[in-house]
Simulated scan of single mutants.
Amino acid sequence: MNIKPLGERVVIKRLEAEETTKSGIVLTGAAKEQPQEAEVIAVGPGAIVDGKRIEMEVKIGDKILYSKYAGTEVKVSGEEYTILKQEDILAIVE
């Protein structure tokens, strides 16, 4: 099953949380902080403003940083995704 976002929405898949700290301490499941880095899985066609389509700034495969409490989490075919608006994306990681 594919997810096709509408308007200026983006489907992302969160990258895995760090298992250890930089100093080498192993974190338990409860201590891991949710990552704010993700990979773009699908991109909507863009918003329409004053009758003109505004192109999306991200594309499939981009690694991004997004706002901490942004988006809606969904589960499709056993996989967890987040759908959020493009405005909730803070940066593209290069």
Rank of each mutant, 00 (worst) to 15 (best):
T28D: 11
G44M: 01
V43P: 05
S77P: 06
N2M: 15
K75P: 07
P5F: 07
T28M: 07
R9C: 08
M1G: 15
L90P: 03
A42H: 04
Y81F: 15
T28H: 10
E37Q: 10
V40A: 06
I12P: 03
D50H: 10
R14T: 00
E87T: 12
I54N: 02
S67P: 02
V40I: 15
G71S: 09
V49N: 07
P45D: 01
P35W: 01
G51T: 02
K32Q: 09
E19F: 06
Y81H: 06
A47Q: 09
D88A: 13
E57Y: 06
G46Y: 05
V74R: 07
A38D: 15
G7Q: 07
I60R: 13
K13S: 01
Q86C: 08
V10E: 13
I60A: 10
I54A: 02
Q34P: 10
R53P: 02
V26P: 02
A31I: 03
A70K: 02
L65C: 11
V43I: 04
I41K: 03
V93D: 12
G44V: 00
E18F: 11
A70F: 00
R9E: 06
E79S: 15
Q36L: 06
K68T: 03
A31P: 04
V93S: 08
D88P: 05
E55A: 06
K59C: 09
P5I: 01
I41W: 00
K75H: 11
I41D: 01
V49T: 05
R14P: 04
